[in-house]
Structure formats: C-alpha cells, structure tokens
Amino acid sequence: MTIQAPRVSTPPVLDHRSQTHSALRERFPGLALPGLIWYAIFTIGPVIAMFVIAFLRWPGMLVEPTFAGFDNFVDVFNDPVFWDAVRNSATQILIGLPLMILLAFSLAFYVVRKPRGHQVLRFTLFIPALISAPATALMFYSLLNPDGLVNGVLGALGFDDGRAWLADPATALPSLIVIDLWAGIGYSAVLLASRMDSVDEEIVQAAQVDGAGNARLAWGIYWPIAKDFIGVVAMLQFLSILFSSAQNVLLLTKGGPGTETTTLSYLIYQKAFVDADLGYSQAVGIVLFVIGLLGMFCIRRLLRASY
C-alpha cells in the first residue's frame, strides 16, 4: 500500500519488519482487538446470556437450572403485575417523552435566539446531567416528603393537604415523571441548541423580513432543520427513561404503593434480586430489550430528516 519504507535509509532488518507490520495492519486492525474483546465479554456476553436464561427454570442462584422452554414467557404474560409494569412504563414514556422533547425544543429555541443572560442559562441547564441518580433521588425524597419544600410552598399558597407525594397512588407515578422531566429537559435543550446554533442567520432574517413571527420561525425553520437530530435526542431520552427508571423507583418508591410505580426495568431488578425468579426476570429483560429496539425504530421513523 502507500506506506513503503525506503530501503536506503533504514537498516534492512527493521525495514522488513515494518513492512510486514504495515501489510498486516491494512488487513486487520489488530490494535482494536483488545478493546473489542473486552467489550464483547462484558456487554455483549451478558446480553446473549440473557437470551439463554430466559428459557431456563431457575428459582434462585443456588438451584440447578433446568430447561423451561417458553414457560417463563407464559408466566410473564399471565402475570397481572407484568401488565401493570407495561402500563406504567408506557405512561412514563408516552407522557414524559413528548413533553420533554417539546419543552426542550422551546427552551433551545429561546436560548439560540441569544436573549440576555443566555450564557448563564446554558450553564444552568447542564446541572441535572452532572448529578448522580442517588443524589437526584435523595433531593426529591426530601422535596416531596410530607413536610418537604413542595408542601411548604403549597401550604404558603393555601393548598397544603400534607400529601405524601411518593406514597400516594394518585401522585407516585406522576412524581417520577416530573423527576424525569426535571432531569431531562435541560440536557436535551442544550443538545438541541448545539444543533440549532448552526442554522444560518440569513435564513432567519429573510423569514423575519417576510413577517414570520417566533412561532413560524420555531416550527417552520428550526424544527425541520433540527428534526433528525431531535430524533437522536429523543432516542437517547427514550432509552434513559425506559431503563434508568429502575434507579429512581428503587430509591424512591420500591415499585409501590402496590404496583403503582413498578416499571418494566424495575420489575427485572425486583424479580432477579428480590424474588430470585431468574428465568422470569430475564424473560422480562428480553421484552424490554425488544421494546427498546422497537421504540428507537419508531422514533427514527417519526422524526426522519424531511428536507
């Protein structure tokens, strides 16, 4: 190929070696192997194992597993708790995700028009992306407790009914959705803003000369230009809500009251590490895996580049 060490300038032995090296390198990127193998062992391996375990009857780590065929899936689909989890995850995503994306887009539109203080705003919007799930959860745990700040503020406005937001069936799941929104809007907005910053100022000015207001500007120019990227951000947040909801549920509600906040990802955790029903847990894992892929496919179709 292109790399040919000149024979005159280097000792012949070295020359020979470096030639075989470069020839090999062109054929296979050997230095990528350690990274690839590492990745395969620790992330692809467990995914494959999940597909095996889902077909085993395995009631606890110390019991010898036996082949179960589709029994685990039959159990899962006949279990009302599973359908509660499906309903909760669906609620969380169908309400949380569109709200998050629309609010993030409006916020990004506001930021890219560079109003006064937009840099302070950008700095602030990153904050939720920096802090860990336990820290976020504990913060909301104290904000939402019956004597917390939320009830304190409501009380000052004359609405206090001493509600335990996370323990009340009417507000437990909505509270979790609010936490998703709190954490997700800012980061999504700065991501969208990074793309919308590149919109040509001349187009915007031309549109304004033609009398386009802010709404026309946002939906007529920025939305279509950023559309495919909005899709990427939506996928990112979709996966994050679908999967990391387990952490908030675990830290704040343990799936309760009843099964009001048992989401699919929490159900996997609960069945594996609390109830020790390993086959069941991994069958739900496969369902979640498939939902993850299907959801990304749908978002991609919905928010395809249209220009």
């Binding site: 990745y39 062992i41 995914v47 999967f243 894992g285």
Partner: peptide, 20 residues
Amino acid sequence: TFSLGFLIPTFAALFPTFLL
C-alpha cells in the same frame, strides 16, 4: 460493531452481568 453498541440496551442484561 462499536457504533451499534449504542443501540444495544445492555441494561436489560443486569442479572447476567452479576452472574459474570
């Protein structure tokens, strides 16, 4: 393979990782 890695929801495999 690495690019596809983004699309694999590995969280679902929490328990097998624990087994590993």
